[in-house]
């Protein structure tokens, strides 16, 4: 077993109303960033875990997302990185 650091992005499911993202986009427009089309506000989690290899570390975090870290009704997740810790 080796230590890995796995990063996950959890974002509101596409198509669902994202009032936080909209509020941030509006603020960016006010600041003059007219080219901003959309903003989505989610969570970024960094999980330090032990696994046989990087693939196993990712698989384990995917299971964590399915069971706790992301709400299957309203959120999507993507593994942003798996690096040796």
């Amino acid at each position: 077993m080796k230590p890995f650091r796995v990063s996950v992005h959890i974002v509101p499911r596409k198509g669902l109303l994202d009032p936080q993202g909209k509020a941030v986009a509006d603020a960016l427009h006010t600041l003059g960033f007219a080219s901003v089309a959309e903003v989505h506000v989610g969570r970024h989690l960094v999980i330090e875990t032990q696994a046989g290899d990087a693939k196993a570390a990712e698989a384990s975090v995917r299971e964590m997302c399915g069971r706790l870290l992301a709400n299957p009704v309203t959120e999507d997740f993507e593994i942003a990185g798996v690096v040796p810790a």
Binding site: L16, L17, P19, Q20
Partner: peptide, 11 residues
């Protein structure tokens, strides 16, 4: 129960 409760639309 089905569904979820999200941040109020008006924040």
């Amino acid at each position: 129960l089905p569904g979820a409760l999200l941040r109020n639309a008006n924040l």
